[in-house]
């Protein structure tokens, strides 16, 4: 059974014409990228896949069950979403923030157990934040805060990771580290679906892509079939140069 299936899905983007219907099937172990220019609706699509927004038409189902039929708490144990921003109006420690991922597993009165703390600490270690457990989140750098958000999502132990520009704010080393953590999750049976700005990450890391074109067109499929120079130039409305590397994925560079 497919993990997540979008059928003739049209997302409703405020104050813009809807995108063309999109159909795709996300399976366990796959790594998906959502590519498209600014403002085309990548975030809205992710939020729709997470059940935070009603689709304009079409349907989304998880484990074969229509998304709107899921109770949020049950859904939260299957699906996590990494937001693009975290406003953080209130003080909190790094450990407390990592622990929020355990929320869907705990009853109302139940305090976080030693096991929950262990899971959260392990997640922090995986994103290179071990030792900062008691730091206030307001004192973190942008990149550290981003990795902390990933730790919260890891703590949630979902089957489907929806990630909105996860590599934002990260230096190169931590970009690579985050991608390798996500690869481990996919190898362990999870599905990753993330919006990206960097084509080359999608090319190198993702098994599948969803393309959202500026004219409202959409398409989805395996990376090596989709990422042709001509298609990408149409996607970004920008001339590109494709650099072939024998035995390795190609690299795309913008032409001046």
């Amino acid at each position: 059974m497919a993990l997540l299936e979008a059928h003739a899905l049209q997302v409703a983007i405020p104050a813009r014409p809807s995108l063309m219907p999109l159909s795709c099937v996300l399976e366990a172990g796959e790594r998906w990228a959502i590519l498209g220019p600014n403002g085309v609706g990548k975030t809205t699509l992710l939020h729709t896949l997470a059940g935070l927004r009603q689709p304009a038409s079409g349907s989304v189902s998880l484990d074969g069950e229509a998304l709107h039929g899921w109770r949020r708490r049950r859904l939260a144990r299957r699906l996590a979403l990494l937001f693009q921003e975290h406003p953080d109006p209130f003080p909190s420690t790094v450990l407390e923030t990592a622990l929020i991922g355990r929320h869907p597993y705990l009853r109302a009165w139940e305090p976080e157990s030693a096991e929950d703390t262990r899971i959260a600490r392990a997640a922090l270690a995986r994103v290179d934040l071990a030792g900062l457990e008691q730091r206030q989140i307001q004192t973190l750098s942008g990149g550290e805060r981003r990795r902390l958000s990933l730790a919260s999502v890891l703590t949630q132990q979902p089957a489907l990771y929806l990630l909105d520009e996860p590599t934002n704010h990260l230096d190169l080393r931590h970009q690579v580290q985050m991608l390798s953590v996500l690869r481990e999750e996919a190898d362990a049976g999870a599905c990753i679906c993330m919006s990206l700005h960097d084509i080359n990450i999608a090319v190198a890391f993702c098994t599948h892509v969803i393309l959202l074109f500026p004219d409202g067109g959409t398409c989805a499929g395996p990376t090596d079939e989709m990422l042709e120079t001509r298609v990408l130039e149409r996607l970004y409305q920008q001339p590109l140069e494709r650099i072939h590397r024998p035995g390795k994925p190609p690299v795309f560079l913008p032409l001046p």
Binding site: R72, R73, R74, H103, P104
Partner: peptide, 23 residues
């Protein structure tokens, strides 16, 4: 008080709370 942990998460944003299973 029983809503305490849900409130902690709500404080981080409405959408964030919803994704973590808070109604």
């Amino acid at each position: 008080l029983p809503l305490g942990r849900s409130l902690n998460i709500l404080a981080r944003g409405g959408l964030q709370a919803e994704v973590l299973g808070v109604s």
